[in-house]
């Protein structure tokens, strides 16, 4: 492996966490209840902390977060999807946290001790995220007709971005072979099992398979990412190097 390959991989991990953290922070002050507001803000905080560490492996984390354009971001498409209604936020979180927990757990045995250390710390936080999202999937699914309709629609929309989570390209195959990275395709069986169990508890059907939408790892993003970045990066773009 080369330093550039590890940096590219760490950037993917960091970008996933950063973009989802930024998305969740958009709920701050707007969530349906104070408890949900605090919960989502806490998740955002954990994710932005994880992003800081992963991007720190790749370079200067602030520089990478605030001074790249959309084409240079390598996050998966799922995390950049808009918050939508509360059900869409929960569906996105449920699908991603279930994946992220498995991914980080596997990464704790990475031969790169920096990635292993960040993963070992982060996986404990993500276990709480997965639990929160799972509880809400059950509650919405097994709730009112309205909540069930909404979580069904949300899962149906988000489902098209699931395959990308497990996508392996040449870079990640190489790193997985060298036991620096993770062969994400091996996580799918357990992910399916965990997701199906929660859906069943929430009396929800698994969404019908969809043609997967791919491209985030190569910088091919939905239009939503640019809007997110315009808000997240505004201050550092307008006043480069500004500090508290």
């Amino acid at each position: 492996m080369t330093k550039a390959e590890v940096s590219a991989y760490a950037t993917r991990l960091g970008d996933d966490a950063l973009i989802l953290g930024q998305r969740l922070s958009e709920w701050c002050g707007h969530a349906p209840t104070i408890e949900v507001d605090l919960s989502l803000a806490n998740l955002a905080l954990d994710l932005i902390g994880q992003a800081t560490h992963f991007l720190g492996v790749a370079g200067d984390s602030d520089q990478l977060a605030f001074h790249r354009d959309a084409l240079d971001f390598s996050n998966c498409l799922l995390v950049e999807q808009p918050n939508g209604d509360f059900a869409q936020t929960i569906a996105r979180q449920f699908l991603f946290s279930t994946f992220q927990e498995l991914h980080l757990q596997a990464l704790t045995s990475s031969k790169d001790e920096r990635l292993a250390a960040i993963a070992a710390k982060a996986v404990k936080e993500v276990a709480y995220h997965r639990q929160l999202a799972s509880d809400w999937v059950v509650r919405l699914g097994d709730g009112t007709e309205e909540s069930k309709t909404r979580i069904e629609a949300a899962l149906d929309w988000m489902w098209r971005f699931v395959d990308e989570l497990f996508e392996m390209d040449e870079l990640e195959m190489k790193l997985a072979k060298e036991r620096v990275g993770v062969d994400k395709s091996t996580l799918r069986v357990e992910w399916d099992r965990r997701v199906d169990a929660v859906l069943a508890e929430g009396t929800l059907a698994r969404p019908a398979p969809r043609r997967p939408v791919l491209g985030g790892r190569r910088g091919h993003h939905t239009e939503h990412l640019g809007h997110l970045l315009s808000q997240m990066q505004f201050l550092q773009r307008a006043y480069p190097g500004a500090v508290w």
Binding site: L38, D46, E125
Partner: peptide, 13 residues
């Protein structure tokens, strides 16, 4: 338990 996430990351309500 009211909420697993509280006023700081390390506390539940």
């Amino acid at each position: 338990e009211i909420s697993r996430f509280g006023s700081t990351p390390c506390k539940a309500l």
